[in-house]
């Protein structure tokens, strides 16, 4: 299947010489949810802004739905919905009018049934006649999403959708993303909440200093880079890790009641068997053992640190 979004050598150098995005090749498959992770100023928003038409590329090409974003901007943009990072809304407009306005901008006739549907899904229906400046911050963000969905986009960009958002809205947003995905909408979200990427993304890209450091299926990424931790709870606390076990790099915690052992699932051998044998040889009685896979967050921090940021 051809990619719905593809960039080839897409790059942005701002007037002051800042290289916000180094030449980037990226293919986004139709119907997937791609999370772009990266610290502030990494180039995530610049990438999205170029694809959506807010910023002119300095070099390279990009296509959305097979349409070049410059020469075929009308067809390309018609497929795109954008929820920007900052809340930008006309304060005196009514919710209904605001959403209808966006639909009009996208060249579509009014479709009250569709707008009603969007507003209901976003719990905005009761507020449809309210002016934007009467709404709470969370409600305003919902309006931004409603606007982005007013023309049934095939590709939805969510730029930091849950920054500063309460738990309810975050949950709703994730549900909405799941719904849209069922309808085949491709979703690209930027975030620095790792848990968000972990919860909803199919693929994860990590951007830092304008470069795509990594792009992988979330599961594969977590397995490949994932380190596991074996936590051993002891029946009786120990004062220190016995000398005979010093080769395992164990960490003592809980006042000597538990030991943590880190191992790599991709390694030749995990060393668990040997460790357990050595433990019993040392006469340590075990109360419980469990394993934990490291989260995307840990993977991410490792990557960005390794990049010299």
């Amino acid at each position: 299947m051809p990619a719905i979004v593809e960039t080839r050598g897409l790059t942005k150098v701002y007037g002051d010489g800042t290289e916000a995005l180094k030449p980037m090749d990226l293919d986004i498959e139709e119907g997937e949810i791609l999370a772009l992770l990266g610290p502030n100023g990494a180039g995530k928003t610049t990438l999205i802004s170029m694809l959506c038409g807010l910023v002119s590329p300095s070099g390279g090409h990009a296509r959305v739905g097979g349409h070049d974003i410059i020469t075929g901007y009308r067809a390309a943009r018609a497929l795109i919905g954008l929820v920007p990072q900052e809340i930008a809304l006309e304060p005196f407009q009514k919710v209904w009018d605001a959403v209808r306005f966006t639909r009009g901008l996208f060249g579509l006739r009014r479709d009250d049934a569709h707008i009603e549907d969007v507003l209901r899904k976003l719990s905005l229906w009761d507020k449809r006649r309210a002016r934007i400046n009467e709404l709470s911050g969370g409600m305003k963000r919902r309006v931004l999403i409603a606007k982005a969905l007013s023309h049934r986009p095939r590709v939805l960009f969510l730029d930091e959708p849950t920054a500063g958002v309460d738990v309810d809205l975050r949950r709703d947003m994730w549900d909405m993303v799941a719904d849209l995905r069922r309808d085949g909408v491709t979703i690209i979200l930027t975030t620095h909440y790792i848990e968000e990427a972990e919860a909803i993304a199919d693929r994860v890209g990590v951007i830092n200093n304008g470069e795509l450091l990594l792009l992988e299926q979330k599961q594969a990424l977590m397995t490949r880079l994932g380190r596991k931790t074996l936590r051993i709870e002891l029946r009786r606390p120990v004062e220190a890790v016995p000398g005979a076990l010093s080769g395992y790099g164990l960490e003592l915690a809980d006042d000597g009641r538990s030991l943590s052992y880190h191992y790599d699932t991709q390694g030749e051998g995990t060393g668990i068997t040997a460790l357990l044998q050595d433990l019993s040889r040392e006469g340590l009685a075990l109360r419980d053992i469990h394993t934990r896979q490291s989260s995307l967050e840990e993977i991410f921090v490792d990557l960005v640190k390794g990049d010299g940021a």
């Binding site: 959506c52 807010l54 930008a88 006309e90 996208f106």
Partner: peptide
């Protein structure tokens, strides 16, 4: 000027309009 000031100009730029 107002859309530039409050940021809603993003909508004009990202819509399929010339």
């Amino acid at each position: 000027y107002f859309p530039k000031f409050i940021g809603t100009v993003y909508e004009l730029l990202s819509a399929p309009v010339n």
